[in-house]
Design a protein around this nucleic acid. Structure first.
Lengths: 141, 141
DNA sequence: TTGACAGATGCAAGTAATTCGCAATAGCAT
DNA sequence: ATGCTATTGCGAATTACTTGCATCTGTCAA
């Protein structure tokens, strides 16, 4: 199991190797991302980073998010339209189940669904580059 | 196979039955939607409607889209973040495969995937209310 | 058919999320 | 330490959509 600290180091190493300048602000934002156990949006990330370092601005959060996304370090989601959410991309691929009553996001993975998707795309003459599978449900009770 | 004209009449009947006022603008917008074979966004719908009736405004397009969505007559999609697209909701449920090179949207349906999704949700203790499955792919060549 | 009125419309202004221009600042290689 | 260039914060701009308000128009009762 990878720890937040390990993930943080891994992020920095990766960025450095890519020739990215390691500014104080980027380090803080990356740290916040590495420690996130949820799927925060830009504003939430900004607030968490600001607490650690008041020199972080929202603009830089947005710029850093794009940078990290371009480097494949994080993943962007659009669960609810109008507000992107982010998560580390180092873990295995998974899909999401969103509790429509609480907004809670549950991660899951199904080999069978992955395989079926590839089959369907192949039948239509396509190769899948990425996909989005979100289940919106209500807890049984 | 339902024709655009039939779909148009069905829309009007449905709205009238719901006590919705049938204004000239709404009729034009509904007509454009009934005839759409693609998944147009608000702006595209506005332009198509404007050609038929210059008294249609973008505001009314947005207001009508929300009205129709609330009545379950159309479906909203957020394929690419930032721009919602719409389609008639009268056809059977289907998912979408988006060609990342051309933006073309292909519809498909897989019973097996639908069933798997329900199974997965059940395992996690949820009932699915709705879901979103979008495959983003590239044509084989 | 007409008249009244609640609900719908266009316009322009307002939001919310995100991006951008620019002058000041700070990594990092030397 | 120094210089070059990328990066930053700020506020303004952009995009997609929503809303306030005065005016207009379906609809229904007479």
């Amino acid at each position: 199991m990878i720890t937040p600290a390990q993930r943080y180091e891994r992020f920095l190493t990766e960025l450095k190797a890519a020739g990215v300048r390691l500014t104080e602000q980027r380090k803080v934002i990356v740290k916040v991302l590495a420690e996130a156990r949820d799927h925060p949006n830009a504003d939430e990330l900004y607030h968490r980073a600001y607490v650690l370092d008041g020199s972080v601005s929202l603009s830089t959060v947005y710029r850093t998010l794009r940078l990290l996304e371009d480097h494949g370090a994080i993943q962007r989601h659009d669960f609810d339209a109008g507000r992107a959410r982010f998560e580390n991309a180092d873990s295995d691929h998974h899909d999401h189940l969103i509790d429509i009553d609480t907004g809670q996001v549950i991660e899951f993975r199904s080999e069978r669904i992955e395989k079926l998707q590839a089959e369907i795309a192949a039948e239509l003459g396509f190769d899948i580059v990425r996909h989005k599978l979100e289940l919106y449900g209500r807890r049984r009770g």
